[in-house]
């Protein structure tokens, strides 16, 4: 019977089994709250009947998810916005910082990849700036930019620029000389060679860099929003922690994972369309 199912089908069944088993173990591991009538009078007097803050069971998280996802865009004031709005703010920051970074990194990477002089001249700067945690820029960004929204976007910009820059330079520098010779023997100009030969040849490496960058940007936005506050999924997590609403915290953690997965899948799809076999 099992052999009639494809590999993917068998893997899907196993995934579902693992999910259900994991949730059941989680559910069973949470000690049930004692019902109020079972408490002794002493316990009731000392406040034992008040609900204790504990890790919520998955059933609560699912109920929360249903509640939140059925109305994701409500806006009831600065501290009470729907999950859709919060994720929207985060995505807006990530994508604007990310595309600004791409606008800088890809042309600059091209230049570095094509010119050994530019590569050597810029390499020391890249090597010093690259390992800096993006959040370390935050105080400077807040001081210079004087705007927490823009500072968050700047932090995304600065963290997503390096993988794109380095991968573009690496991809462009590694384009096979044969293909460049094809362009030369066909009298293509520099710009035409760049767009019709070098760009497609280096595209898989460039998109790999873009995929790494979007992953890092999504990791960083949560931490950045915890710092700058106001809106966004990172702020939401921190706000619910302050509210001691662990159900919402767990739910938002899940949402961060799902959005990250979707972003990565989008770049994986892009990678497949531009990949080529030699």
């Amino acid at each position: 019977m099992a052999s009639q199912l494809s590999l993917n089908q068998r893997a899907a069944i196993l995934s579902i089994v693992l999910l259900v088993v994991g949730l059941l173990i989680w559910e069973a591991a949470i000690p049930a709250q004692k019902a109020a009538e079972e408490l002794t009078e002493y316990e009731r007097l000392t406040g034992g009947g008040a609900p204790k803050a504990g890790i919520p069971p998955p059933s609560d998280v699912l109920a929360k998810a249903w509640e939140q996802l059925s109305n994701p865009f409500y806006d009831a004031g600065p501290n009470d916005k729907g999950i859709g709005i919060q994720i929207g703010y985060s995505l807006f920051r990530v994508l604007s910082g990310y595309f600004l970074a791409a606008l800088v990194a890809i042309p600059l990477g091209f230049l570095i990849g094509m010119s050994p002089v530019a590569y050597r001249a810029l390499n020391p700067f890249i090597q010093v700036l690259r390992p800096i945690s993006p959040l370390a820029w935050m105080p400077l960004a807040l001081f210079v930019i004087q705007d927490s929204q823009l500072s968050a976007i700047f932090v995304i910009f600065i963290c997503s620029i390096w993988p794109m820059l380095l991968n573009t330079a690496f991809g462009v520098a590694g384009v096979r000389q044969d293909w460049v010779n094809v362009a030369r023997t066909h009298e293509l100009g520099h710009l035409k060679t760049a767009f019709t030969v070098i760009l497609p040849a280096a595209a898989p490496t460039i998109v790999t860099g873009m995929r790494i960058s979007i992953g890092i940007a999504w990791l960083v936005i949560v931490a950045a929003e915890m710092l700058v506050g106001g809106t966004g999924i990172g702020y939401y997590v921190w706000n619910e922690w302050n509210n001691l609403d662990l159900t919402s915290v767990i739910f938002s953690i899940l949402m961060i994972g799902i959005v990250g997965m979707v972003l990565d899948a989008a770049f994986a799809a892009l990678q497949r369309t531009i990949a080529y076999a030699e």
Binding site: D178, T185, H186, E187, V197, P200, A201, Y276, A277
Partner: peptide
């Protein structure tokens, strides 16, 4: 001087653009 369309080349390793 320099490469030109007047001189076409067929390379041993084909040099087709793989994409």
């Amino acid at each position: 001087s320099g490469p030109s369309l007047d001189r076409g080349v067929v390379f041993q390793n084909y040099s087709l653009l793989p994409w």
